[in-house]
């Protein structure tokens, strides 16, 4: 079983890495990194923070593009062009197909992020060398942890993409749904806590129905904001390892449950 999952993952990964759009995404990220070096001088003190901000933004935004275009394309092409007929005529169970594809997408993103991380480290190091006095709060450890969580966030998003590809028939719907999930997931926390603080001060009493809806949504959509350590990395703030552990576990659990659900639904699906 592992062998089949791995074989499919490798094929998916190769297919993704050799896609031309990957180069476009690389170019975009490199442009942001170059911009970083150009813009750094505009700031007064917190150059380290601005540099980390821009680097993490480049990595995570490139990741989003990767998920929304390459990952969705890799999932959808199989079904649209009926390549899946070939794969499923080999002794793959539907669940193995889902996991193989998912691992493949993870590999594509891992590869792309590793390349970008290399460039990113070079950028940080060179800005660091240019303005050595303004990197007081910077810490490589926190930066790498933040990068890891960016990756985890994208892994979650990939699971969402796989899930929606498994239940819908067009890639456009997958794109819309996974984008919507991302936007809701990343802003949900802010809205929930804002409403809570408003309710506490009794300024605006949000309707009970709205609060309940948000509660339900918060169970369905992962809280992407929890994986966002950009501010911590930017300022080299101390990391609370138990918090990170809980977040990590939360993400992995969500991925596993979502993919199991996806393979359940995929089992009932017909490919014609």
């Amino acid at each position: 079983m592992m062998q089949r999952v791995w074989a499919l993952a490798l094929v998916t990964c190769k297919e993704g890495i050799r896609d031309r759009s990957l180069y476009g995404i690389f170019l975009f990220a490199l442009f942001v990194l170059g911009l970083n070096i150009a813009v750094a001088g505009f700031f007064m003190r917190d150059l380290g923070k601005v540099t980390v901000d821009m680097n993490l933004a480049a990595l995570s935004f490139a990741g989003l593009l990767l998920v929304f275009f390459i990952a969705i394309n890799l999932m959808a092409k199989d079904i649209d062009k009926k390549t899946i007929h070939l794969v499923l005529s080999k002794p793959f169970s539907r669940g193995e197909y889902i996991w193989g594809k998912y691992v493949g997408l993870l590999l594509v993103i891992l590869f792309a992020q590793a390349v970008l991380l290399l460039f990113s480290c070079a950028t940080i190091a060179s800005v660091h060398a240019m303005y050595p006095n303004y990197f007081a709060g910077f810490s490589w450890l926190v930066f790498f942890v933040a990068v890891f969580f960016v990756y985890l966030q994208q892994a979650l998003l990939c699971a969402i993409v796989v899930f929606f590809s498994a239940i819908t028939s067009t890639s456009f719907i997958t794109l819309i749904f996974s984008m919507a999930s991302y936007i809701v997931g990343i802003s949900l926390e802010e809205v929930v806590f804002y409403l809570r603080s408003q309710a506490a001060t009794q300024e605006v009493v949000a309707s009970a129905a709205l609060q309940r809806t948000l509660e339900v949504v918060s169970w369905l959509v992962p809280n992407f904001a929890a994986f966002d350590l950009k501010l911590e990395a930017a300022h080299g703030l101390a990391l609370d390892w138990t918090r990170l552990g809980v977040t990590c576990g939360y993400g992995v659990m969500y991925i596993v449950i979502l993919l199991l659900l996806a393979s359940l639904i995929f089992k009932r699906r017909e490919f014609n």
């Binding site: 062998q3 089949r4 499919l8 490798l10 009926k82 007929h85 070939l86 499923l88 080999k90 002794p91």
Partner: peptide, 29 residues
């Protein structure tokens, strides 16, 4: 399925793989 070989009509294979890689995948799976 372990004992079945299937050729779809208008087979669409993976774009960016080489033939050798495709067959490797078939064998490994």
């Amino acid at each position: 399925l372990r004992d079945v070989g299937y050729l779809p009509e208008n087979p669409y294979l993976y774009d960016h793989l080489t033939l050798r890689e495709l067959l490797q995948f078939a064998g490994r799976s």
